[in-house]
Write a protein that binds this DNA or RNA. Sequence first.
DNA 1: AGAATGCTTCGATGGAGACCGAACTATGCG
DNA 2: CGCATAGTTCGGTCTCCATCGAAGCATTCT
Lengths: 224, 224
Amino acid sequence: MREGPDIARIASLVGDPARANMLNALMGGTALTASELALEAGVSLPTASSHLSKLMEGGLLTLASQGRHRYYGLAGPQVAGMIEAITGVAEAVGPKRVRPGPRDGAMRVARVCYDHLAGEQAVAMLDRLVARDILLRNDNEIRLGPSAASHFSAIGIDVGAKPRRPVCRACLDWSVRRSHLAGTLGAAILDKILAEKWARREKDSRAVVFSPPGKQAFERVFLG
Amino acid sequence: MREGPDIARIASLVGDPARANMLNALMGGTALTASELALEAGVSLPTASSHLSKLMEGGLLTLASQGRHRYYGLAGPQVAGMIEAITGVAEAVGPKRVRPGPRDGAMRVARVCYDHLAGEQAVAMLDRLVARDILLRNDNEIRLGPSAASHFSAIGIDVGAKPRRPVCRACLDWSVRRSHLAGTLGAAILDKILAEKWARREKDSRAVVFSPPGKQAFERVFLG
DNA sequence: AGAATGCTTCGATGGAGACCGAACTATGCG
DNA sequence: CGCATAGTTCGGTCTCCATCGAAGCATTCT
């Protein structure tokens, strides 16, 4: 009967299937409306609304009201990280997947993690950026290297702005068990990939699928 | 209504206060009996037993029977990592701690994480070992450096044995948000610290408190 | 063998909360 | 203003499960 942070409270929020589905959907990074989340969770609108207010009260979500729409999103990278950690355990102890399936394979290669890219591609990218000294890494702390500004501005990403959120962050990848790049730079790179149509997001999934030429372009720019 | 690893199942296991208390207690690293865990969770023995079988079925615990005692322990580092992640969120969104309190401070400095040392001291130690090339680090992968064997055997730790568990592992620290050393080497170092009485474990807590001379000795050996 | 200890199983109870339909509020549109 | 859409609140039902006492196994001690 010890004290400390109330982990049961947080875990029980994630522990309901409807809420877990909602959180999973929000791991895609885009904020969703209550009706979209109700559909996603397979429950009625009133039920979804009740779940959402609980998640809000628990501090796991943020809310952005725009007119008559109310967009719910994950409260931050830490929450996303927790979901990834739980997913990792569920994956490990869960029923031995009868068959990894093609979609599952695609998820391992590349997927969206909150607002940035995850999966093998993302891990390889961070490795390469560090190897080329474009980013400087010390454990989970990642800083811009001397050539970062010119390198990224050449491909249309401005790293000069100083938002409150850190520019770079390491984020643990549940499929590869290594880190990939998060932070505003990670988000900007994902934006770039999608804007250039190097890859598209799989419908109803976190998977990100590169087109063959898109993959080449990505590798030339980030793994070159 | 999407598929994938059943995160709700895992989270709901942690989501019950009694079970959360048990898991928290097991984060201390030592396996405990059902009665000890019942006491820890503040429930009767039958109730605890029921919880334990659920946790077992969920794959979060391992069981070692020794005579009439049955020792329950965390199933592995991944489970411990998940608990740390949830703890981090609970800490962040939880009621703004009225006062950090001395015990809380002690936890930040040094505590037990599963079977090894965590906290500021542990993070500093890993940094230093890597800086001295005694350990070689590439992201979460940590290997022994050339001088590791002689360095550790000089202080009575044998790194030659080849157990199934990896010798070194990086483990994310929830208070410092950086990595510390896990794996058999991490465990051996914690054993050493306690065996030499450089530090003692706080009663009913994960905190590890160094004595002044113990701290000096520890710093000389590992941070020197 | 008999007693004691450690733990699990059984059965019954009670309470929490997930759920939905209906009514209500708020915003936008013509 | 009146209608439509988005969302929340309310009231009631129903299921699940945490809980404990009592009884049942298993192991060890004497």
